[in-house]
């Protein structure tokens, strides 16, 4: 079991899961704010860039491609 935070809230996942996997597994569907509202995972394989998050202060990380690490600080990105 691993624990990450998403906008400060703790979320649990299984070791080895991608960040998108952890979030979907926790019942979350939207974690980015786009022009039209919330977005989450869409293509699941790194193509669409809909699932972007900041991870430990680094912007623009595809949640579906990044393996979650215990303690990761995940933050929402808002499309300007």
């Amino acid at each position: 079991m691993i624990r990450i935070t998403v906008d400060g809230e703790p979320v649990q996942g299984r070791e080895g899961q991608t960040i998108a996997g952890v979030l979907v597994g926790a019942g979350r569907t939207a974690w980015r704010t786009a022009q039209t509202g919330g977005r989450g995972v869409f293509c699941g394989i790194g193509v669409c860039h809909d699932c972007l998050v900041s991870v430990n202060g680094v912007e623009g990380v595809r949640a579906c491609r990044r393996e979650a690490v215990d303690g990761d600080r995940v933050e929402r990105e808002v499309r300007p």
Partner: peptide, 10 residues
């Protein structure tokens, strides 16, 4: 040649 970054806060 010109480079373009991803969108970001200004």
């Amino acid at each position: 040649v010109i480079l373009v970054t991803t969108p970001m806060p200004q």
